[in-house]
């Protein structure tokens, strides 16, 4: 892909002495929605954290808009225009919903307005003065996604946004991801729920033991079901 927005090549990462990523390669074009699929412990979260600069010990190359990110601290990476929604959601208990939403600073022009975000998540508007962690799991997930839409970041890293949520809410998150895509966001989505991923993504990368072992385009999903099932153990 000539105009990859994000290009990851030979990415390795360590937590202390444990070597977790052994050379991850993938790329995302502007405006694409791409997933990282894989079993528990495959290294999906670690890949997102390494892109974001949260895992400090990393080698290889991660370029965003042709600028190298490996070696940069995470605040600098965020200011390039990448926003991160962690697996554990990271809603702050000492901040109310409004404050949580307004916490991430605007890094570039062109982000969504607070009213637009509340329009997307009306439940949050009703509870804007509540303590962030008093919300239900689904609402906290909406808050964690909503707060990174304001910043002007063009690439969103979403780590298992559907984990542990009821089917109606999963569906709602699917709707929202499709809307964000039409708004022009580029999205890297980590998922274990393949059936959900298949409904939103353009392409899927399969992660296993700290490497990307396969790539499946949305059009080939039907013919690759057997292969996918063996990868994911479902």
């Amino acid at each position: 892909m000539a105009d990859a927005l994000l290009k990851v090549s030979g990415l390795q990462a360590w937590y202390g002495e444990s070597h977790i990523l052994h050379g991850v390669d993938f790329e995302i074009g502007r405006g694409e929605l791409v997933t990282l699929l894989g079993r528990n412990g495959a290294g999906k979260t670690t890949t997102l954290k390494s892109v974001m600069g949260i895992v400090e010990k990393r080698t290889g190359s991660v370029t965003f808009e042709n600028g190298e990110l490996v070696g940069q601290p995470s605040d600098v990476i965020a200011r390039r225009g990448i926003a991160y929604c962690p697996e554990e959601r990271g809603v702050f208990s000492s901040l109310n919903v409004d404050e949580n939403l307004l916490l991430p600073p605007v890094v570039k022009p062109g982000g969504m307005l607070v009213e637009e975000i509340y329009g997307l998540f009306p439940n949050l508007l009703e509870r804007r003065r509540s303590q962030g962690t008093k919300l239900s799991g689904g609402e906290q997930q909406m808050l964690a996604i909503g707060r990174i839409l304001r910043t002007g970041a063009t690439l969103l890293l979403l780590d298992e946004p559907t984990e542990g949520l009821a089917p109606v809410i999963v569906q709602r998150i699917g709707d929202i991801l499709r809307q964000l895509k039409t708004r022009g966001f580029t999205i890297l989505l980590v998922e274990q729920n393949f059936h959900f991923a298949a409904t939103v993504a353009d392409r899927h990368y399969v992660v296993e033991d700290g490497r990307v072992i396969d790539m499946i385009a949305a059009a080939d999903v039907a013919s690759s079901l057997g292969k996918l099932q063996s990868y994911l153990g479902v």
């Binding site: 949260i54 605040d75 901040l95 307004l102 916490l103 991430p104 910043t151």
Partner: peptide, 22 residues
């Protein structure tokens, strides 16, 4: 706003930094 950064960073400095705050 600054106080919000402080409170959030007291809870989870890594995430606050990943939002672009020094």
């Amino acid at each position: 706003r600054l106080g919000g950064y402080l409170r959030a960073a007291t809870e989870n400095p890594t995430l606050v930094r990943a939002f672009g705050i020094n």
